[in-house]
């Protein structure tokens, strides 16, 4: 067998539910590990995004300066970038903060509901962006996988189609929210 296909799974501003759906492939995850190498995911200790990744599944919207840097880097070093789930595809839950504005959100979290040291944290940690955005508004996306989260079956289908050298057709398999 030739080299394994490299896969990364990353999450930005998401709830981890899309990653749970990846893990929900259960034993199929073990089976997949024979054909792909999970080079960069919450399950391995790899420290930096690899120079080249074949497939990246990205969960979550772009919400902080860190997210912005990450998604640009991922795009640059990835062949097939998959927006995994409604947050990545369309913004979904994280964009609920947009109508209120980031400042108002921070005010509630750190001034109104705190009882000591009331202040908006701003040292060492990355700033939150004024507006939360879905991934495709920042960088081009190759495959959009709707769902909150997309099911394990759909994720498995997409990966195996890509392994077989086909572009997965998702029209009848996913919808937002489901």
């Amino acid at each position: 067998m030739s080299e394994k296909v490299s896969v990364a799974t990353v999450w930005l501003d998401g709830c981890s539910g899309c990653h749970m759906s990846i893990f929900d492939m259960d034993e199929r995850l073990i089976e997949l590990a024979e054909h792909v190498e999970f080079v960069y995911t919450p399950l391995v200790d790899r420290k930096d995004y690899p120079e080249h990744v074949d497939i990246a599944l990205v969960e979550g919207a772009v919400s902080s300066e860190d997210d912005l840097n990450k998604i640009r880097k991922i795009r640059e070093h990835t062949t097939t970038l998959i927006a995994l789930g409604d947050c990545a595809v369309a913004g979904n839950i994280p964009t609920m903060r947009n109508p209120f504005g980031t400042d108002a959100i921070l005010e509630t979290g750190y001034i109104e509901t705190a009882t000591a040291g009331q202040q908006v944290p701003d040292s060492i940690i990355p700033r939150l962006l004024p507006v939360v955005r879905p991934i495709h508004e920042i960088v081009p996306v190759d495959i959009f996988m709707q769902g909150c989260p997309p099911s394990a079956d759909v994720i498995y289908f997409v990966i195996t189609e890509l392994l077989a050298g086909r572009k997965p057709k998702l029209n009848d398999k996913t919808r937002p929210g489901a």
Binding site: D13, S64, D66, I105, T108, T113, L128
Partner: peptide, 8 residues
């Protein structure tokens, strides 16, 4: 990271 559920 901070998400802001308490507000939205």
């Amino acid at each position: 990271q901070y998400r802001g559920f308490e507000k939205f």
